[in-house]
Design a protein around this nucleic acid. Sequence first.
DNA 1: GCTGAAAATTATGCATT
DNA 2: AATGCATAATTTTCAGC
Lengths: 162, 162
Amino acid sequence: MPNKSSFDLLDYQIIQELHADVRMSSSEIARKLNANERTIRKRIDRLIADEVIRPTAVVNPQAFGYVTAVDIFLDAEPDQEDEIVKALLSIPEVTYFAFGLGSREMSIEARFKNNDDMREFLRHGITAIPGVLVKGYALVPRILRNIDEWMPKKEDFGLETD
Amino acid sequence: MPNKSSFDLLDYQIIQELHADVRMSSSEIARKLNANERTIRKRIDRLIADEVIRPTAVVNPQAFGYVTAVDIFLDAEPDQEDEIVKALLSIPEVTYFAFGLGSREMSIEARFKNNDDMREFLRHGITAIPGVLVKGYALVPRILRNIDEWMPKKEDFGLETD
DNA sequence: GCTGAAAATTATGCATT
DNA sequence: AATGCATAATTTTCAGC
């Protein structure tokens, strides 16, 4: 079956390199991949412009003392969805925020420096938002992988597996 | 109350700039912050060495056709924890993986290109791992924030709020 | 821990295929 | 879409404060 992916081997290799070290210079990538520096740069620019990759500095919450994480499952009043979304996104402790299937379902992950802060948030922080009900929550003692560590498969670039 | 944060205003500003655009040159950051380029570079190197920030290219699953996400809650046989962790981390579709409170509890988030792939994973992919039981799962139609977008508060740098 | 100055490296703009 | 070339900008190295 022919693959009509819009990416090729060079894209795959560039993304691999940038994923491992986004500060690597285009010249060095070009050297490693036996390609022209100008070509590499244009590819990188296009990958960024097309929002295929987003170069950023991911901040480690633990370095700032945020050692506790909790997943919170919410029931949100549909009439106030816009306000609720806005309120949740404005909370700095919220590190993840997603909609569930039903129009009322939302889930967040939040980080805290200690159990008191977490408890305070669960009891007074989150419930202070009008239209929000905490359906349940679960402590998350250890996170082993996050989206920023994700990489597509080789096949996603229209390439055969090794 | 005096704050004994190990970070200062300059660190805060540097992280802000890099978070917004990690490709920004040290020279440009220095210009924006009225600091010396050498100073900025050393600060950046230290922030990276101390694992406060991790410069990377976050890959957008949607750009590769991964349009569906599902949260899966697992019951894992404690005796086989090591093997299960290894197996889960080796699955490319898994974009999030965390332990729950109990020694048996794990949760993952996985991405798929379509519902068939997701269903296949739920019915045969995940359950093929010895010692793993799917307790439940929930579709995630839309994700509004992820950890890579997180930034500490100004107070976390030992600074007053505006 | 911060800064200076020269050398090496890299990025950019323009043109060509 | 990829590349060569000249110029501008940045990073690096070594040093001193």
